[in-house]
């Protein structure tokens, strides 16, 4: 659906995006992850046509994406509107710019406001709305023209827990009928919606992983042995369990399969390893993200 090919962007001599290349398929929900300043917002602004990039191309079904602006819905990081406008006027304004007719707007504005839970606030001025409500109005303007791709830049990062929960529920609903690219640095949120993750660091893609990826489902057990214990050398305990030393006295067992503790204990016992303490951990997006973006 969308192909981003070798996109480069620099500003005042600083390279912000370096050879960014990835695809977005129809129906996918992709998480664009990266620490602050990684280039996520700049990339999103390039995709949406808000800013221009120097090299590379971004295409929508094989053609320049700028010809398909009406197929994209966008929610910015700091959503705000003209304070003096009402919710309904804001939607009419952005809808008109999308080329929607008055009849379409008359028919759909109430529906969209209902979808985002702002039906009874349609005559409220933007200045009277809370942060969460503004964010919901932002989503309303992004979905009013029924876009095929919805791009959400940090949709929940500035919200309180109630606002976050409201927006997350809304995104879950939207996911059922539109393709979504969501930028965030809150990894728990990303793992709730996304099928795939593009990890970006210093303007470069350092990871492109799916929920089906082996690395993401790897199970790990950490254990400690007593200091006086005989040294344990890294060893493959059996076909599925791999033993690794993390630091002196601390080891981990990794497995692609779910770890059965009774079997693990038997294997450790076989190798005369006496355990002092045990901890179980599933390797999730957060761990992979931290491995990929942390400075060595």
């Amino acid at each position: 659906m969308i192909a981003i090919h070798k996109v480069n962007k620099s500003f005042r001599g600083r390279q912000i995006l370096k050879d960014i290349t990835f695809d977005i398929s129809e129906g996918e929900c992709i998480g664009l992850l990266g620490p602050n300043g990684a280039g996520k917002t700049t990339l999103i602004k390039c995709i949406t046509g808000i800013i221009h990039y120097e090299d590379g191309e971004i295409t929508f079904h094989g053609k320049d994406i700028l010809n398909f602006k009406n197929d994209i819905g966008y929610l910015s990081q700091n959503t705000d509107f003209k304070q003096w406008m009402t919710c309904e006027e804001s939607l009419r304004f952005f809808g008109s710019l999308s080329g929607l007719s008055k009849a379409y707007l008359d028919e759909h504005i109430t529906d969209v406001l209902t979808d985002v839970g702002l039906k009874d606030k349609n005559k409220y001025k933007v200045e009277e709305l809370s942060g969460g409500m503004k964010q919901r109005l932002g989503i309303a303007q992004a979905i009013l023209h029924r876009p095929k791709l919805l791009i959400l830049d940090e949709p929940v990062s500035a919200l309180d827990p109630i606002g976050r929960s409201e927006i997350k529920n809304l995104i879950q609903k939207l996911k059922t009928y539109t393709t979504i690219l969501i930028s965030t640095h809150i990894l728990d949120d990303a793992s709730e919606f996304c099928d795939r993750y593009i990890i970006i660091k210093n303007g470069e893609i350092v990871g492109n992983i799916t929920n089906q990826d082996e690395t993401i489902n790897k199970k790990q057990v950490y254990f400690q042995v007593n200091a006086e214990e005989t040294a344990v050398s890294p060893v493959k305990l059996n076909e599925s369990y791999v033993l690794q030393e993390i630091k002196p006295g601390q080891f981990s067992v990794t497995s692609k399969e779910p770890i059965v503790f009774a079997n693990l204990m038997k294997e450790l016992d076989k190798h005369h390893i006496q355990i002092h303490s045990l901890a179980y951990e599933k390797k999730d997006v957060e761990k992979i993200f931290l491995e990929l973006v942390s400075e060595v």
Binding site: I50, K69, G73, L97
Partner: peptide
């Protein structure tokens, strides 16, 4: 600064 310009430029403007 408020992001309104971003919303405008994501339209065919």
């Amino acid at each position: 600064n408020s992001g309104v310009q971003g919303f405008i430029f994501t339209r065919p403007v």
